[in-house]
């Protein structure tokens, strides 16, 4: 039971980073300035690296012989466990940055908790990841601030973006039975405890960015349990194309 929960939880970690990396890599070669293009690609590479560590470990915990690629390429949408937030389309650069900022703030808090995991492997992966994510968070906080407090247009775009994605933030903090079982063993933290510090950081950055903190309380949910938005199917169609078209081939 605990192993099944741990597998489930590792999939969530792996799928969040994988799907966000996939989204970010859509920007490669299309960024608004070269330096930005390269920085965003760096973040995609970091997240992809983390995804591979989580998924590899998930496969080992499951012990049915599935490696990172079997898990990434041969599951259907309802078997993915990522947050709805990370599968949302890139939109304009403001939307990409808003998504990144909401995610990074949460991701950074989560990894800091996972450093204390009673599972040594989880703690070790978190230790590697937290260094990268510290930089991600500094960068997205800074960009949201500058875009919010930039021009009238950038402010408008940034406000629209943070409003648009707000309903996808609640899911990050909503615990389910899997979270609770693992938190009881000290393997992961209860995501509910991340909400307050998350909100504090977001509010502080928005204050500097002259952005209004959205006040909506209705939150979308389901990604963690495999109920996704329509976007995920298309992400997977693209990502999994070769593995599906040439079953069993090695690349």
């Amino acid at each position: 039971m605990l192993l099944a929960d741990k597998f489930e939880s590792l999939l969530r970690l792996g799928d969040n980073t994988l799907i966000l990396a996939q989204r970010l890599s859509e920007w490669c070669g299309k960024g608004p300035v070269f330096e930005e293009d390269m920085a965003l690609t760096n973040i995609a590479l970091d997240l992809l690296g983390q995804a591979r560590l989580w998924l590899t470990y998930a496969g080992e915990v499951e012990s049915k012989g599935r490696d990172e690629d079997a898990l990434a390429y041969l599951r259907d949408a309802h078997q993915f466990r990522n947050l709805l937030l990370v599968e949302q389309p890139n939109g304009d650069y403001a939307l990409t940055m808003a998504r990144q900022f909401y995610f990074d703030t949460w991701h950074h808090l989560l990894l800091q908790e996972l450093l204390k995991s009673t599972d040594e492997r989880i703690a070790a992966i978190a230790e590697q990841a937290v260094k990268e994510v510290t930089y991600h968070l500094r960068r997205s906080s800074d960009l949201v601030t500058r875009l919010g407090a930039g021009t009238e247009e950038s402010h408008r775009r940034m406000q629209t973006a943070v409003d648009e994605l707000w309903p996808y933030t609640g899911e990050m903090f909503a615990p389910d039975a899997v979270d609770e079982a693992l938190a009881a063993q000290g393997i992961i933290c209860n995501p509910g405890q991340l909400h307050e510090p998350w909100l504090k950081h977001v509010a502080e950055v928005f204050r500097q960015a002259t952005l209004t903190l959205p006040s909506g309380t209705w939150m979308q949910k389901g990604g963690k349990q495999g109920r996704h938005t329509e976007h995920l199917g298309y992400i997977l169609t693209e990502m999994q194309f070769l593995q599906r078209a040439y079953p069993g081939a090695k690349w």
Binding site: S25, C28, F34, L48, Y73, F241
Partner: peptide, 25 residues
């Protein structure tokens, strides 16, 4: 990049394409 057949190939290709931007710079 978004269609690379394995996560390892995706990583390599992504960093290669990023290198090319660096060369441009």
């Amino acid at each position: 990049i978004t269609r690379a057949p394995t996560l390892k190939r995706k990583t390599i290709l992504l960093s290669k394409v990023q290198d090319e931007a660096g060369h441009g710079l």
